[in-house]
């Protein structure tokens, strides 16, 4: 196999990791509340700027490690704020949340432009992340390896929380039958808030990863949120397994398409691919059967 193919395969894996981190929050909160946060992309942007600020205070290798929890907590807090002040008040009109959160997205982008400038800021990655490995005749940048590792860790941790902890049990119960969950004594609104914060936090973490690859700009979230939506739609709405599978498929597809065509044509092909996929398999990669959806 030629080096270009292997190289793009690797790029695809790191792209899939970013798609996954950006999409997990969308998938989790859609599965639970049937709402879509259009400002989810701005959680990535927020995470990127928080990483940049953390590195201003604590430069060097420790800074990037510290930036991860800072971005996670910052974005989780922002997500919690959006849920409790806006989305929850529109719960009777779910479609309106699309418009309202889109407004939040524009406000956050403009806010970042006013605060940090339109040009964008550069995060200086520590030395151990700027190098690269050579394997099978292909150069593997350390930053991309780091991103893949972090995404795998986040996915593993999330699966562990959902399957093995009490809060995970409650999340699955609310997801499967919201009415019954509240009648068994589960505070469904608190579960909503927890999941929404968690999903926003993971997106913030994805923002740190983005900052390692390129400059953080006010609209950096926009270029990842569209693929993230595609990932969620193709994954089978609200399923973690499906979201993971479709993130990998779409990440690899986008990177491998770039062997033959340029980046913007590859984006277009990605969209066409998802449309065709949904025609053949409307329920997505993994179908989640819930009573609420049948009703």
């Amino acid at each position: 196999m030629d080096a270009l193919f292997l190289n793009q395969l690797f790029n695809g894996a790191s792209l899939a990791s970013l798609y996954l981190l950006a999409a997990l929050g969308l998938a989790l909160s859609f599965g639970l509340m049937r709402v879509i946060n259009m400002a989810h992309g701005e959680m990535l942007m927020l995470g990127g700027y928080l990483a940049w600020m953390t590195l201003l205070v604590v430069p060097g290798a420790m800074g990037i490690i510290l930036a991860i929890p800072v971005a996670f907590i910052g974005a989780a807090a922002m997500g919690g704020l959006i849920l409790s002040t806006l989305i929850r008040r529109l719960s009777a009109r779910p479609l309106d949340t699309l418009l309202a959160t889109w407004g939040v997205s524009l406000i956050l982008q403009q806010g970042a432009r006013d605060l940090f400038g339109a040009v964008g800021v550069e995060v200086r990655a520590p030395e151990w992340l700027t190098g690269s490995f050579v394997a099978f005749g292909v150069t593997l940048p350390s930053a991309r390896l780091f991103i893949i590792a972090i995404a795998a860790l986040v996915l593993g941790a999330l699966a562990l929380v959902l399957l093995k902890t009490r809060i995970g049990l409650l999340v699955r119960a609310v997801n499967q039958d919201r009415m019954m969950a509240s009648a068994t004594g589960i505070d469904v609104q608190r579960v909503d808030l927890t999941v929404f914060c968690l999903g926003s936090g993971v997106a913030g973490l994805a923002g740190v990863m983005l900052a390692l690859l390129g400059p953080v700009t006010p609209n950096v979230g926009q270029s990842y949120i569209i693929p993230a939506f595609l990932v969620v739609v193709m994954g089978g709405l609200g399923s973690i397994v499906g979201t993971t599978a479709s993130a990998i498929i779409l990440g690899l597809f986008a990177a491998l398409a770039q062997i033959f065509v340029d980046v913007s044509v590859a984006q277009m092909l990605l969209l066409v691919f998802v449309i065709l996929f949904i025609q053949v398999r409307p329920q997505g990669v993994v179908a989640v059967k819930t009573r609420q959806l049948d009703a």
Partner: peptide, 25 residues
Amino acid sequence: FVPQGRHVFPQLTVMENLETGLSAL
């Protein structure tokens, strides 16, 4: 509450279903 149609959580195990009931405590 034991509702009409029973409303067990379909993808949870029997034990997990019973554990959700502990939330009322």
